[in-house]
């Protein structure tokens, strides 16, 4: 299972990076969303996987009776999912606003912060 997941994660990363390298903002956004999933799966797999045994202690017990899934990566990922969503939403709105203000959906035409004709530094004191 872990091997199969490792290959799938590689594919997730490949797709995410390929999308991020495009200059189209909306494709980059899709790339960010997929990259988030890829990282979450990576953390999940590094914590080793078990089948269908959630990390919950049965009622009335102090300790689980059988081996359970690793709860630690799950706790890390749970917050990561929500934060990843917040970031995705923020980027989406940022793209939307950039499109409205700059009329640009391509990073090549977005040069407000680093204009092409930025002046040379002065050579004096």
């Amino acid at each position: 299972m872990e091997t199969a997941l490792a290959i799938l994660i590689g594919l997730f990363f490949t797709v995410a990076i390929y999308l991020l390298l495009s200059r189209s903002l909306i494709r980059m956004l899709l790339g960010v969303a997929i990259l988030g999933n890829a990282v979450n799966l990576l953390i999940f797999t590094i914590g080793r996987v078990t089948r269908e045994v959630p990390p919950i202690v049965p009622n009335g017990q102090y300790q689980p009776l059988e081996p359970i899934a690793n709860p630690l990566p799950q706790a890390l990922i749970l917050t990561a999912i929500v934060i990843g969503f917040s970031l995705f939403a923020f980027l989406l709105v940022l793209t939307y606003r950039a499109y409205q203000e700059l009329n640009a959906d391509n990073t090549d035409t977005m040069r407000v912060a680093e204009p092409e004709d930025s002046p040379r530094p002065p050579l004096s004191y």
């Binding site: 959630p54 799950q74 990922i77 999912i81 990843g84 969503f85 939403a89």
Partner: peptide
Amino acid sequence: LLGAPDLGFTQFMVETLS
């Protein structure tokens, strides 16, 4: 499938909202 129901449900909700 891999024993993380909390994650699964959260992921469902997030994907829907996304």
